[in-house]
Design a protein around this nucleic acid. Structure first.
Lengths: 338, 338
DNA sequence: GTGAAAGCGCTAACAT
DNA sequence: ATGTTAGCGCTTTCAC
């Protein structure tokens, strides 16, 4: 068995309480000699307090959970880095979980984290566990990141998708594209996806471009799926019936679309232009470098963590949920033409 | 306060032990009626056992820690997915940590995880905490992934770097490249980096190509650093003094090198060929698609988790550490010429 | 300035 | 088939 506080106390010739006080930094009224003795014994035995026992008593774990939707997405990892840095600075530990965009997995992770008594939670939610999240949020502060949960009142850090889409469409139109298709993952429960689809329609309307139902396509990022959707979109005979550009609703779609277009032997942007929501480290290495609407992901992670920390320290203050909106930024590269 | 086992017991009109037995699935000799009653009360109160209290008593948390070197690296995230899937199937929880290639962070995370009483640990180690890792491994099973710790005896899952490098060099030579430079991150404590550097020299020798000290360059992935190193390498006047190809020791280097080469206005592979260790999802989208030595990362994650599970279940069996070597695979694309 | 004792929520002998 | 009891390792009143 590993060494306990009792053993430290015994060897140092003091009581457990005294060692405990030492551990928790209550030196104020402590004899310099006892203090030193305890320090020495701890060092000698290489004693480390049992966090489980401590937390069981204190009812705080100094640990925050974060559940991301898809850890393979660079978007998620950048957010994680942002969360991590801020949390670390404040002395909180982070338990990272990957829901894999699976509501069941998300639910299990939320429950596990609650069971482990985390002090706070950051979720890039699937959008399918709103009741559970709302319920947990009664006792444990939760901050949603990127994706809102429309029907519950909860702190959220996200980006102004509508503005980003507007910039994207404006840019494409300014480059002469009138036929603008949009590819997105299914947007049933994921707020940014829905917002982007709506903003796309709004932006088209603003430019007097008629919205074509068949040019708004929902797809998975499976290679076959993307390919067949794209072929349907671009494979026709009549030129007038084909879009000249594709707006991709997030980076996973963008990557898959670029891959599929190359497979089809089409050239970007001459035969088909591409613009994506989300920037990532190597978007500029792609042939051609992809024009994107970038989100300040790292900052968003920072902010979500900072907000959560405030909530966790806030005691039982009447917390009125807030939503923090970040501004997206259009990064003009080569995939839409000059 | 949240509901406890005592309350469930009270309301169900049984003792805590009985509820506990129910929770742990010891139904065998339990009255069908009590069983039902308990189930009902639990559902009514939405009772969830306190994992902290349970683990404190049981001395098992059903939780595994994983520390990756750099979560921004797709290599890490693929490994994570592999670990996750296997662990989940076996009913273990995963706490993910990102050491950010910082030995101090790694040390802190190891300690935190130990304090939290994880049942097992998977580390993609910085190589600078070997004593700590060896010590922890006395009581908690640890599996190293990707990077070995040469001086300690511990389970390891990694790839045959030497073989991969040999394939890479062979390929470049077969394409007529004799001037092969190598770029790597500092390889002080990171086993695959060291192995790849050594294998590079061995492979050159095997082809009768003299090794040039100034063509083996250590660098960070900072844009400026890479650029200046590359300029030193490729910027000279005398053609004979310049390598015609660059072997990148991992994917982070590869991405940075490609970026820098583009910035310099050079074309790949005509002016300079590039071959990288590590494949990743969108390496083929780069202009030109990068030829790489791929590692079966997901499988490696799977295997590491499986091995760890075996160790955790193995009780106090005399575990003789093993090393599992995966085979790399050369993926010929366009960055080395035809 | 330090100690004794109770208890956090749970499990696991040992009874019956 | 179920209850009683004694902790797991720590913190925290309350004494002195």
């Amino acid at each position: 068995m590993s060494v306990t506080i009792a053993e430290v106390a015994r060897i140092a010739g003091v009581s457990k309480s005294t060692v405990s006080r030492y551990l928790n930094g209550f030196y104020d009224h402590m004899g310099a000699d006892t203090k030193e003795r305890i320090a020495q014994v701890i060092a000698e035995l290489d004693y480390r307090p049992n966090a489980l026992a401590r937390s069981l008593k204190q009812k705080r774990t100094h640990t925050v959970g974060a559940i991301v939707a898809n850890i393979l997405n660079p978007f998620s990892t950048s957010i994680i880095r942002g969360i991590e840095d801020t949390l670390q600075e404040a002395g909180f530990n982070l338990i990272l979980c990957n829901a894999d965009d699976d509501p069941a997995k998300e639910r299990d992770y939320v429950n596990m984290l609650v069971d482990k008594q985390i002090d706070g939670l950051i979720i890039n939610t699937t959008g399918c566990n709103n009741e559970l999240i709302a319920q947990v949020n009664q006792t444990i502060p939760i901050v949603l990141i990127d994706r809102k949960a429309s029907d519950i009142d909860i702190d959220t850090v996200t980006v102004d998708s509508a503005r980003g889409v507007r910039q994207a469409v404006d840019h494409m139109v300014s480059l002469g594209h009138a036929g603008i298709a949009m590819l997105t993952l299914p947007y049933d429960h994921v707020s940014p996806r829905l917002e982007r689809v709506q903003a796309y329609q709004t932006a088209l309307a603003a430019h007097g471009i008629p919205f074509r139902e068949d040019w708004l396509v929902q797809t998975s990022i499976e290679e076959d799926a993307i390919l067949s959707k794209l072929q349907a979109l671009l494979g026709g005979e009549a030129i007038a019936d084909k879009p000249t550009s594709i707006f991709c609703a997030n980076n996973m779609i963008t990557m898959s679309v670029v891959k599929a277009i190359k497979q089809m032997g089409l050239t970007i942007p001459d035969e088909i232009a591409v613009l994506g929501f989300d920037d990532w480290e190597w978007a500029q290495l792609i042939d051609p470098p992809v024009t994107v609407v970038a989100q300040p992901v790292y900052d968003m992670g920072n902010k979500a963590a900072a907000l959560l920390i405030k909530r966790m320290k806030g005691g039982r203050s009447p917390k009125k949920p807030i939503t923090i909106l970040f501004e997206p930024q259009l990064l003009k590269r080569k995939s839409c033409g000059e």
